[in-house]
C-alpha cells in the first residue's frame, strides 16, 4: 500500500474517525477527538504549504484568529449568521493571505519564517489591543451556530461533545480529500516541482510566485476554517487562538508526522494534541517535554514520525 494513494489515505482516516469512539471511556474524549481533528485540518493546510510547496509559515495562527473572530464579531456587529460569518472569515483570510503573501513569499528560509511570525504576532496584537471591537485579552462570546439543533431536526440527536466530534471529523475528511486531490493534480505537481528545484521549475514554465501564493492562500483558508471550528464549538474565543505558539505547534505537528503526507501530518496533530492530555499530572513539565520532543524527532527522524515508523515496520523491502 502506497501512502500517497488517495483512497487508501481517506479510508484509513475514515476508519480511525469512525472506530476510535468505541474505545472512549467517557464523553470527555470526544472533545479531545474534535480538538485533534481541528488541529488536523489546520495541519493539512500546512502540508500543502510546507510539504508540497516547501515554504514555511510561523504565522498561520493569525488566520485562525481571523476565522474565529469572524464567527464572534460579524453576528454581533452586523447581524450576519454565524455559519456565513465563518465563510466570510475564510474569504477575508484568503484575501489577506493574498495581499501579505505576494511580498512575503519572495523571501526564503529563515527570512520567510520570521516575516510570517511577525505577521501572526501583529494579528494577535490587534485582537488583544482593539478591545472595543474584540473584547480584548479576556475574549468574547460566539453565538450558537444552530448546527446541533439542525442535526436534531433531521433526527441526529447527539450530546454536544459528540456532535462536534463527528462534525469536525467530517470537515477534516473534506479537507484531507481536497489536499489529496491537489497532490496528484497539475497544481500539486507544480508546487512539488518548485519545492524540488525552484530554478528548474521556472525553466519548465512554472510561475513560481503565483503557485507559492496559491499554496499560501489555500493553507490560510484551512487555518481560518480551523479557527472558525474552535469558535463554533466553544462558543467563546480569546486572542490566544492567534498566538504564535499555535503557529509553531502546527508547523511542528506537520513536520513531526512527515510534512510530505496528509496522513502523517494528521498523525502528528494527534500526538501533539494528546500529549498535554496525557501529561496533565506533569503539567509543569509540559513545555520541557514538548521542546525535547521537537528536537529529538527533528534530529533522529528527519522524515517525520510516521514515515520513519513505517520504514521500521516494513524493514528490508524499502
Amino acid at each position: 500500500m502506497r501512502l500517497s494513494n488517495k483512497s487508501a489515505t481517506l479510508l484509513v482516516l475514515a476508519a480511525l474517525i469512525a472506530l476510535t469512539p468505541i474505545f472512549f471511556p467517557s464523553s470527555f474524549y470526544y472533545r479531545v477527538g474534535s480538538l485533534i481533528f481541528i488541529n488536523g485540518l489546520a495541519v493539512t493546510g500546512m502540508v500543502i504549504l510546507i510539504g508540497y510547496a516547501g515554504q514555511i509559515s510561523l504565522g498561520h495562527a493569525g488566520f485562525a484568529g481571523i476565522g474565529a473572530y469572524s464567527c464572534a464579531l460579524m453576528p454581533v456587529h452586523w447581524g450576519i449568521p454565524v455559519l456565513l460569518a465563518a465563510v466570510l472569515g475564510a474569504i477575508i483570510s484568503a484575501l489577506l493571505a493574498f495581499l501579505v503573501g505576494r511580498p512575503i513569499l519572495r523571501l526564503k528560509g529563515y527570512y520567510l519564517g520570521v516575516a510570517t511570525l511577525g505577521f501572526g504576532i501583529l494579528v494577535y496584537m490587534a485582537l488583544t489591543n482593539e478591545a472595543w471591537l474584540t473584547g480584548g485579552p479576556d475574549g468574547t462570546q460566539v453565538p450558537d451556530s444552530g448546527l446541533r439543533d439542525a442535526a436534531k431536526a433531521i433526527g441526529i440527536n447527539l450530546k454536544n461533545s459528540e456532535f462536534w466530534y463527528w462534525f469536525c471529523g467530517v470537515v477534516l475528511m473534506i479537507g484531507a480529500w481536497l489536499a489529496l486531490n491537489l497532490y496528484v493534480s497539475p497544481t500539486g505537481r507544480a508546487l512539488r516541482a518548485l519545492h524540488g528545484s525552484e530554478i528548474a521549475a521556472r525553466t519548465v514554465g512554472v510561475d513560481v510566485a503565483r503557485y507559492k501564493l496559491q499554496a499560501f492562500v489555500i493553507s490560510a483558508v484551512y487555518a481560518s476554517a480551523a479557527g472558525s471550528l474552535v469558535a463554533l464549538q466553544n462558543q467563546f474565543v480569546t486572542p490566544d487562538i492567534a498566538g504564535y505558539m499555535h503557529s509553531i505547534e502546527w508547523v511542528t505537528m506537520t513536520v513531526l508526522g512527515g510534512a510530505g503526507s496528509v496522513l502523517g501530518a494528521i498523525f502528528g496533530a494527534g500526538i501533539l494534541t494528546l500529549l498535554p492530555q496525557v501529561l496533565t499530572m506533569f503539567a509543569e513539565y509540559e513545555q520541557l517535554l514538548l521542546g525535547l520532543i521537537m528536537m529529538l524527532v527533528m534530529i533522529f527522524m528527519r522524515d517525520g514520525l510516521l514515515p520513519s515508523v513505517l520504514r521500521l515496520i516494513r524493514g528490508k523491502d524499502e
Binding site: 510561523l58 508547523v251 511542528t252 513539565y285 521542546g291 534530529i299
Partner: peptide, 23 residues
Amino acid sequence: APVVSLIIITIGASIFLRGVAQV
C-alpha cells in the same frame, strides 16, 4: 538538515529551556 528542521530544532530548544527554567 533542511532549514525547516533547523527552525523547529532551535524553537524546540527555546521551549525546552523555558520549560526547564519554569521548573
